[in-house]
Design a protein around this nucleic acid. Structure first.
Lengths: 162, 162
DNA sequence: TTAAATATGGATATATTTTATCCATATAAT
DNA sequence: ATTATATGGATAAAATATATCCATATTTAA
């Protein structure tokens, strides 16, 4: 029951992209450098974001990644699902139908109470993630990032976008 | 982001144990037979339930597993955590501190907004699981299990406990 | 008191998933 | 043209989940 590390990378990357001036883009190499991450593996995760239409890409020199839509139109759920997929965490294998007391499949009208309860909890998780926009994430980051880092980031951005 | 299959097995097993007459117990072999599961692997999962004090055990002939407390004092969360452990699904590796803009660890007072948001969603999931008692699970099962299966189960129990 | 049935924990094996890398190709900018 | 970039496929390595086996301790029943 672990989320892939790619989720953390993806959210931080999106949060950084949200700070880009309009029209600008950051390539994998620079994103990876910013967070000191494996470039090739981050590339795979960015691809997932791209396939999910969370980021857009521009190939060639000066290209890279940018958000595909406004930061308040992207939720944590969007990002988590882009990386982790949309299949439920709890997967019901219908063991109630097996064994000596099991009867024909047609007798079981709907998922069992166990599966329903597990899925309901999962929905609460997803609903909570859906409530948090990337805009909010960025706002929190802006507020809680130490000033010293903000200054370094400002310089880093100027150089990265030059 | 998958829950172990052991979670499903454990909940179904507990639900079955909840139906036992006072004083009775079911050994691994019979539990596994009921659901047609791998006996040795189920044994490992039952051990986790035992270590978490969700079930009690009695060794020797006529022994086996029984619930350690009333079914309404056991929640889905208890069972999930017994099998999956208690560590958070989202693990924050503090990538914000790394790279060219990172500064000293002492500058970061509390977990970042990303981690806090992810953990909050996780809490919603856990809270929801905590709300569902094994008693409720058993009641749902009793209500929705087809009559034909209930009859077979009754006979199976008589034989298993004889 | 003995034999049988059971849980326990450790060791180990196998399968699956996650993490990570590499490469060939397509595309865009200069 | 050349360079910088994303893409998707293939593959490799590491970690985790699944599964089995065994030696031991314990308890019951005969």
């Amino acid at each position: 029951m672990k989320l892939s590390e790619g989720v953390e990378w993806a959210i931080h990357s999106c949060s950084l992209l949200a700070a880009l001036p309009t029209g600008a883009a950051l390539p994998t190499r620079k994103l990876a450098a910013y967070f000191e991450l494996s470039e090739t593996y981050l590339a795979k995760n960015l691809q997932l974001l791209s396939n999910a239409d969370i980021v857009t890409t521009r190939k060639g020199p000066g290209g890279g990644y940018a958000l595909a839509k406004a930061a308040d139109a992207i939720s944590l759920l969007d990002i988590v699902e882009a990386i982790e997929g949309r299949s439920p965490c709890f997967s019901c294998t219908e063991i109630r139908r097996r064994g000596p007391t099991g009867i024909g499949d047609e007798a079981y009208k709907r998922p069992c109470g166990i599966a329903r309860s597990m899925w309901k909890a999962e929905k609460a998780w997803r609903d909570e993630l859906a409530k948090v926009s990337l805009h909010k994430i960025q706002a929190m980051a802006l507020e809680e990032t130490p000033d010293a880092q903000l200054e370094k980031a400002k310089i880093w951005f100027e150089e990265a976008l030059a």
